[in-house]
Structure formats: C-alpha cells, structure tokens
Amino acid sequence: MKNLALGFLCLLLISSAGFTQKFITKTGHIKFFSESPMEKIEAHNHQVKAGLDVSTGDMQFIVLMKSFEFAKALMQEHFNENYVESDKFPNATFTGKVTNIKDVNTAKNGVYEALVEGKLTIHGISQQVKEKGSIEVTDGKINAKARFNILLSNYNIKIPGAVSNNISKSVEITVEMILDKLN
C-alpha cells in the first residue's frame, strides 16, 4: 500500500511537471517612441527578462530603466534623471496573464492572437492594462509581440514646461521577445 501511494505521488509529480511549460528570455526587446511637433524620441532596451508559462498563461517581465539606449546622450540623461528617476525606480515590471492562452498551441507553428491583462509598474506607479498582442510559434520558440500606448501622466512622469512641446504626453511601447522553452 505504501509503495502504491509512493508510486502515485511520483506519477503526480511527473505529470504536473509535464504540464508546466515555461518559456523565457533575458534578451527581450522593448522600444518606446514619442513624436511631437518638435522632435521624435526613440529608445531601445534589449535586455528585458521575461517569462511565460503556457500552461497557465502567467506572464511577467522586468526591465532595467538604465539599460534604455537613446541616440542622444542628453535625452538618455534627462530620461534617467528627470523623467523616470531611475536611481529611485530602477525597474519597470509587468505581471499578468495571457487570458486566452488555451488558444495557443505551442506544438504547432502559427500566429495566434494574444489577449494580455495585468499590472504594469513604471516609475513606482502600478496600473491595470489590457492589450492585444500576438504569439508566433516557430519550431518550439515563441515570438511574443505587442504594441500599445501609455499616458505619462498615469505613471506620474512629469514633463517640465520648458520642454513640454518636445515630448509627447503619450508614448508608444513596442514589445518583441523571442522566448525559448525552459528545459
């Protein structure tokens, strides 16, 4: 009886491990872009850490603000020191779910619509977000993409009056991550 119970427990552990399918990356890409009548501002971060559990849809990512790269050094300085205050708030994070993960078949190549909901935290302020993206499955890898806009005021990011014409109040965020299956 004891052996039977032990065998059942082992079977349970093996089967639950089988259902946990995590995909990860540490080199995800996030771009933000703002366009105003005065100038365009674009920055890239290629070191985004992200994870997606396709058995539950749980998704998270973490971004170091100091890893954003701008074409102009002055913009990068202002971004870190004045706007996102990266010494005080070094990370931005997202914790949420792909709510329709059951529609995504990671065993079959294809492009699937992804409905993403969760908590986006930037500049120490968390907001609920609900966006559409896509998940492309290619030979066991996942390419997750999304593009959406955020209002800087929702994250308490203040633009000084002197440069308010140079910086748009809304910023477009583009996310592109190729996630590998965690072995």
Partner: peptide, 10 residues
C-alpha cells in the same frame, strides 16, 4: 552597471 533584475546583475 545598469542594475539588478532580481536574478542577474547587468
């Protein structure tokens, strides 16, 4: 040093 992402120093 860009910081720590809860698993790695970058």
């Amino acid at each position: 040093c860009s910081g720590f992402n809860d698993t790695d120093v970058i």
